[in-house]
């Protein structure tokens, strides 16, 4: 019996030691390397993509389990994780906006799930063991850092104005319920798909006339889809629903647009094409607004170089900006 007690005690000590050892290992170096790469392009992003957006002014908190390693330039500090769960997001701390992001190793497992993209419950349950699940490419991780960085800019300066797009009685609205209902309508979903495919065509077109016709066609399909939403949900609910769509396109579409432009800055053609090709695939849930918003932003880039200057302060739906610029 003595032998059992000693062996059992030793096993316990061994397990506790392993826990302490593996639990105390700090942030893998890879994460610092990726942050430094992101930091180094901050000025180029400000001058070439979004004037007034200084990624390097935001501390980036990289989460490894329940510890966050806060990186800003050469400074690095350590703290307890501020959120109860692993997520990529922008978060207001006492000392200002922080970009929160899971470490690269966790992002390899979670992928864009950590960014909060929607998927069906069934997929969530089984996608974990998908054989074609790949580690997240380094450049996509940097692109997501910038996605959250743009949210930090939005939340820090314009969030109240941006929420003006939402219905006044937003607390009484079940947007997710409506979203589920609309996602279940094959006809409407086909129109969504047609919209993003048209945006893809516009972005790819090299002919001016084709470009202009493409925009008209896109706006017509969008209007047709909004009518279909009205007839499904009723005028009042549809108006609220469309306001939400516009809000997500502005909030998340611009952030996804930032991702694709980062791929361009990093000269990662494969990643750029992946983002662009997503316009040809059908998206469900809120993900479709990430894509359509990104698509509209890319079209706006072709129409004007100034559309970004006051897009958040004016908080106008992207489709309205497109409509206006296309008329000129």
């Amino acid at each position: 019996m003595k032998a059992f007690k000693i062996t059992y005690g030793c096993i316990g000590l061994l397990i506790i030691s392993l826990c302490l050892y593996f639990g105390s290992r700090g942030l893998p170096e890879k994460n610092r390397e990726l942050y430094n790469r992101a930091y180094s392009i901050s000025n180029a992003v400000e001058s070439r993509i979004w004037s007034g957006f200084h990624f390097n002014q935001y501390p980036v908190a990289v989460r490894k389990r329940s510890t966050e390693y806060v990186l800003q330039g050469r400074k690095e500090t350590k703290r307890e994780a501020v959120l109860p769960v692993t997520a990529a997001t922008a978060y207001k701390m006492k000392d200002g906006m922080n970009i929160l992001i899971p470490c690269k190793e966790d992002m390899d497992s979670l992928g864009q799930m950590a960014e909060g993209l929607s998927g069906s419950g069934d997929e969530l349950f089984t996608a974990q063991f998908a054989l074609d699940k790949e580690a997240m490419p380094d450049n996509r991780y940097i692109a997501i850092l910038y996605h959250e960085g743009l949210h930090a800019l939005q939340l820090d300066n314009y969030f109240e104005r941006m929420t003006n797009i939402l219905p006044k009685h937003k607390d009484d609205i079940d947007f997710n319920g409506m979203l589920g209902e609309i996602d279940g309508q094959t006809g409407i979903m086909d129109l969504y798909k047609k919209e993003t495919k048209t945006l893809y065509g516009i972005i790819k077109s090299k002919d001016k006339a084709e470009f202009k016709t493409g925009i008209k066609e896109y706006l017509a399909i969008r209007s047709e889809r909004e009518k279909a939403v009205k007839s499904r949900l009723g005028a009042k609910k549809a108006e609220d629903f469309i306001r939400y769509e516009n809000f997500y396109e502005l909030m998340e579409g611009t952030a996804r647009y930032m991702e694709i432009r980062i791929a361009e800055i990093l000269k990662d053609e494969k990643l750029y094409d992946e983002y662009l090709d997503s316009l040809q695939e059908s998206g469900t849930g809120r993900e479709k607004y990430y894509r359509s918003g990104m698509g509209i932003c890319l079209v706006l880039d072709k129409l004007s170089s100034e559309w970004k200057d006051d897009i958040f302060s004016r908080a106008v739906p992207l489709s309205e900006v497109l409509n206006k610029l296309a008329e000129v």
Binding site: I15, L18, E105, S109, Q128, F129, A135
Partner: peptide, 25 residues
């Protein structure tokens, strides 16, 4: 998550596995 990482060839974080061993213990 770690079992899935192993299946698809991604790096495995040993810590959650050791924590589970500690839980059994």
């Amino acid at each position: 998550n770690q079992a899935s990482n192993f299946l698809v060839g991604n790096p495995v974080d040993i810590y959650p596995l050791v924590v589970q061993l500690l839980c059994i213990y």
